[in-house]
Design a protein around this nucleic acid. Structure first.
Lengths: 112, 112
DNA sequence: GTAACCGGTTACTCACAGGTTAGTTGCAAC
DNA sequence: GTTGCAACTAACCTGTGAGTAACCGGTTAC
């Protein structure tokens, strides 16, 4: 942290990232979609999240161009959510978080 | 994601990590402390966080052994917060988040 | 003697994230 | 003809994370 850069400057990218990833379900959703694309109900069932909340989270992810929403004109209509290429750039970040989580869990369990 | 592992199993480490890092100020605090150790008021001023909230966050970080609280028997007494070695294992994760934030900010600005 | 700094704590307030329940449209199965 | 699913939306409710303000004991500076 140089003298010319304030702490605020330094923390801003962190805030930016947290804004995009904020909310209880965004990271889990991205993780699910990084494995393969999914339909609305599928995500809902897997995560146990309320439809309203999931809908909101998906919209936010879409607005940041991390997730793509595709409507299939089938009967009954299907909607599929998938990660965009830009969304895929988050896989590394989320992978790191998850790796740390694995490490952390091991650490806690071995201290019993 | 194998057939024998449920999605819940897969997401658990992510949840573990998010539990530890949850709260508006934990990541910023760790980031500050990763540069160098700081005193209470110092952190408070730099982040603009309420004393009550900072106090709580620091206690939680301490309980997870990420941060060490050292009291100096000086006059007036000083309290210094620093990252533990375990806390340092988070630097990589937070670095990744920040890098992504930098990248994201650039992406947004170039689209104007 | 009084104002200010450090490292907090306590009490009060409040916005809002997230949850619950019900409803909608459009089709298909029983 | 009504029950059910997909993919939501609308209305309402609630817990709590976080902020504000006041205060504490100890200390030093003015």
């Amino acid at each position: 942290m140089s003298a010319t850069k304030t702490c605020t400057d330094y923390l801003r990218p962190l805030r930016d990232a947290m804004d995009v990833l904020g909310g209880k379900w965004k990271i889990p959703v991205i993780m699910l979609l990084s494995v393969r694309e999914r339909r609305f109900k599928e995500i809902q069932r897997e995560l146990g999240v309320a439809a309203k909340v999931l809908s909101k989270e998906l919209k936010e992810l879409e607005s940041h161009e991390l997730v793509k929403r595709t409507v299939f004109d089938t009967v009954p209509l299907a909607v599929e959510y998938s990660l965009t290429d830009y969304g895929r750039t988050l896989e590394k970040v989320i992978g790191e978080i998850r790796d740390w989580g694995v490490h952390h869990r091991e650490r806690i369990l071995e201290r019993v």
